[in-house]
Design a protein around this nucleic acid. Structure first.
Length: 801
RNA sequence: GCCCGGGUGGUGAAAUUGGUAUACACGAGAGACUUAAAAUCUCUUGGCCGCAAGGCCGUGCGGGUUCAAGUCCCGCCCCGGGCACCA
């Protein structure tokens, strides 16, 4: 039997066949155990896919196919995260509806994914820009609004003067607009904000429940949430007019607080500033306001600040301390104000030195605090009732004092900030709220969802910062759902993160328009068993999705409080020049060309063979040739198939391969699974014949990697059932036992001889063989044997002196 | 600066978690087939010394633990990713 490997013909044939027989169609329930494996869905950009994009999808496809064969009811869906700025910019430039561009891009992506032979059930395809989908994104927002988790806030935001839109921190790159590169400004804007901080503790604590997540990603999330324990302390203005609240992790150093610093945005800045200082302070604030947080924090060399002219009273020492303003203090963290303890904090020390502020040592343990800050723990001095106490005890005593005197309390603080959830853009989900002069902010009634994004003439930003929606009067003007009076719609839209925060639930029940997801289907499919995607989403997307999921759990919409059971991140595929694949470097490899020239199966095998899955790897079309050769070699074995039994050697290797491939796929170690299959194929080629059934077992484990050709081989050999509807092979434990082993003999830890022996050789005999061996004799002759070590099934080490 | 990865042949990498370092693949070289080339097949391919048998060295660098270290410990250097004046 000879098979001519025309990959184009074969791959097309099997794609058609799979579609016709519908073998990837997913049942909502059957008697098999379920397995839900999910890819992070792509943003369909205008460029189409490059060869790096599908790496994760290939891996999940292999995994899904194995699970199918192992008897699981597998859900492995795909969809589109299609709202976002590129489509909007494209619309502005070309005066076409972003929907048209999006549809076109989706079509390209879909064609390219289908080309690679993935086992998606396209009947479950979703698109975040579909009103039937975003109806539920809006619904979730409404529920959050109802529960007080969404609030309006008029805060300074990042403003791109060129795109004329507001940008969240997530859309910035080095203080510049991620899209157009312009330097951003800080401009106040009315925003909708989600109170993710209400969930900070749960988001943090439940990380410990995520046993099957990579430790590095969990650590990144912990750092992102950034919980710290300390105290909130009230400082009073010396004339008793104002209270300034600070957060500190070192309440034990309170006696050493010799000045205070407010963020330039702090609400008390103008109240506190004295007449004399007004001008200098305003000047300073103006400059600070121009800078983004990133820029402010990047100027590491020197901190700048300005004195307000005001003084506060240190609550424990009673001393008057000056109040300063400095932009290294961030408005969004803690209370936006700090107490400065220059003797025991490096930044405060630097600042105090620069502006000639007092440095008072209150913790013993360092060198000279006039030369260097001491940030460690030690014994308190110059600290009144804390003197002689060690740091931990001093903290405790201070907590008690603060509470007794009502000057503060124990407090927990998070780095995590509330989520600015509105964008002044067109191409996003409208926020389903109405502004009524009489009733205030009123939610759109559930039965009126979705609030559909209207068509507009002009996608250009308004320039005022408002969304282009604000210009569509017939859409903006509406009736208040409460009093039926004149009202206006909210014109802000949601950020791109909205749809991706819950989309995995939609796949479970993609057509439901009565509820978010049916209880029955949700309890069957949830949670996602395995989630695979880019490491760049370790903190943002994955924290947002966990937040939304916990909220949905709280309102009874889902049955588990964590959405993703196992998480694996995929390493980038870089260009052949070791740089990120991008148009800019001209190093983009198009999968269309690769598949056309070498076939989808070769590309799949190659990408999995490149190296460890989570590690970055550089593309090499040369390397791809190896994958192609392996497939051709596997095919050519069809000419060596017989009815006779395979040799012992082949049987042993085959069953080892079956075992290893299953284990390696489970662990996402595809590269070593493929190596093992190559070893088997080389051996069969060398020996020159193999039993047909044995060969088919090999084809079954190869099939998830190279589905098209494996189907073809099976058909040519007379099999009538798709390999993906047949059983995953089981290895025979008897056959993988090695009867003979190479016993390694070392002298003083150095390899001197290997001898083939029975695998179950016992210590005494092994030692005897070793010492009597001729080569070994030469090494131990005339020397004293100190001891002999025997490792079962491995080696003998003779230690001589 | 902090946190998380990583450093192994000409190249991508493997190593059962302390037990034969370099599996598998690419590339390179030689040979077979061919009028020739391609394809395919076979062999060689870490370095040094040696005609050979064989020996010595060798997993970023320097120490250490151990019968035995790519793997563990201590101290450095470099590369990648993330966070960054976090009070």
């Amino acid at each position: 039997m000879k098979i001519e490997y025309n990959h184009k013909k074969i791959e097309e044939k099997w794609k058609k066949k799979w579609e016709k027989t519908g073998i990837y169609k997913v049942d909502d329930k059957n008697d098999k155990p379920k397995y839900y494996i999910l890819d992070m869905f792509p943003y369909p950009s205008g460029e189409g896919l490059h060869v790096g994009h599908p790496k994760g999808y290939i891996a999940t496809d292999i995994f899904a196919r194995m699970k199918m064969m192992q008897g699981f009811n597998v859900l492995h869906p795909m969809g589109w995260d299609a709202f976002g700025l590129p489509a909007e910019n494209y619309a502005i430039k070309n005066k076409v509806h972003p929907k048209l561009a999006t549809d076109k891009n989706v079509a390209t992506y879909k064609r390219q994914l289908e080309m690679l032979g993935f086992s998606y059930d396209w009947e479950r395809e979703i698109n975040t820009t579909d009103p039937e989908f975003y109806k539920w994104t809006q619904w979730i927002f409404l529920k959050m609004f109802e529960r007080g988790l969404a609030y309006e806030s008029n805060e300074p935001i990042n403003w791109c003067p060129s795109c004329k839109t507001g940008l969240a921190n997530e859309d910035l790159e080095d203080g510049r607009c991620e899209r157009c590169g312009s330097e951003i400004e800080r401009v106040p804007m009315r925003q909708w904000v989600l109170k993710i901080t209400d969930y900070a503790d749960r988001l943090l604590n439940d990380i410990d429940k995520l046993e099957d997540w990579e430790e590095s990603i969990k650590e990144q999330q912990r750092n992102w949430i950034g919980r710290s324990e300390g105290a909130r302390v009230n400082f009073q203005h010396r004339d008793g007019t104002e209270n300034i609240e600070v957060f500190t992790t070192r309440p034990d150093t309170l006696f050493g607080a010799t000045y205070m610093v407010l963020a330039p945005e702090h609400k008390l800045v103008s109240t506190l500033t004295t007449k004399e200082q007004k001008k200098t302070v305003q000047e300073y604030i103006k400059n600070a306001a121009k800078k983004s947080n990133l820029e402010r924090t990047e100027l590491q060399k020197e901190k700048t600040g300005v004195f307000t002219g005001a003084y506060a009273i240190n609550p424990v020492s009673g001393k008057e301390i000056p109040i300063w303003i400095a932009d290294y203090v961030l408005a969004g963290y803690g209370t936006g104000a700090i107490m400065s303890v220059p003797a025991h904090d490096e930044r405060d020390w630097e600042f105090a030195k620069k502006y000639g502020l007092d440095i008072v040592e209150v913790v013993l343990g360092g060198e000279d605090v006039d030369q260097e800050a001491f940030c460690g723990e030690g014994t308190n001095v110059n600290s009144g009732f804390l003197n002689t106490l060690e740091t931990a005890d001093a903290k405790e005593k201070m907590f008690k004092w603060l509470e007794e005197k009502k000057r503060g309390e124990k407090a927990v603080n998070y780095k995590l900030e509330d989520w600015v959830f509105s964008r002044q853009r067109y191409w996003g989900e409208p926020i389903p709220l109405v502004h009524c002069a009489k009733c205030g902010v009123v939610p759109v009634p559930e039965k009126e969802l979705p609030v559909v994004l209207p068509d507009v003439e002009n996608y250009e930003p308004t320039g005022t910062g408002e969304s282009p929606l604000a210009a569509i009067e017939e859409w903006v003007n509406t009736k208040c759902p409460k009093c039926l009076g004149e009202a206006k719609r909210e014109t802000n839209t949601m950020p791109q993160w909205a749809g991706s925060s819950w989309y995995y639930l939609r796949y479970i029940d993609p057509k439901n328009d009565k509820e978010l997801v049916s209880k029955e289907k949700e309890s069957y499919w949830s949670p996602v068993d395995f989630y695979v995607g880019g490491a760049e989403h370790a903190t943002r997307h994955l924290i947002y999705a966990r937040f939304w999921h916990k909220f949905l759990f709280d309102i009874g919409a889902v049955a588990y409080d964590e959405p993703f059971k196992r998480l694996q991140h995929v390493g980038l595929i870089q260009g052949e020049d070791n740089r990120k694949m991008s148009k800019r470097w001209g190093n983009v490899i198009n999968p269309d060309e690769i598949v056309d020239a070498h076939g989808a199966d070769s590309m799949r095998v190659y990408e999995m063979f490149m190296g460890p899955f989570s590690q970055a790897a550089s593309w090499s079309t040369n390397g791809l040739v190896g994958a192609r050769k392996f497939i051709e070699k596997s095919i050519s074995i069809t000419e060596k198939v017989t009815e006779e039994e395979s040799s012992e050697e082949i049987k042993n290797l085959l069953h080892k391969t079956i075992k290893k491939v299953a284990e390696d796929i489970e662990d996402f170690k595809f590269n070593t699974a493929i190596s093992q299959m190559m070893i088997l194929v080389n051996k069969i080629t060398e020996i020159g014949s193999v039993n047909k059934k044995d060969y088919l077992l090999f084809i079954s484990v190869l099939a998830p990697f190279a589905p098209h050709i494996c189907e073809e081989i099976r058909e040519k050999l007379g099999e009538t059932v798709s390999v993906f509807e047949s059983d995953w092979p089981k290895y025979d434990p008897e056959l993988i036992i090695d009867k003979k082993i190479n016993l390694v003999i070392q002298v003083n830890g150095k390899l001197r001889e290997t001898i083939e022996v029975e695998a179950d050789i016992q210590e005494e005999e092994a030692k005897k063989i070793a010492t009597e061996n001729e080569t070994i004799q030469k090494w131990i002759e005339g020397k004293e044997i100190v001891k002999t070590i025997f490792v079962k099934g491995k080696l003998v080490n003779i230690v001589v002196k």
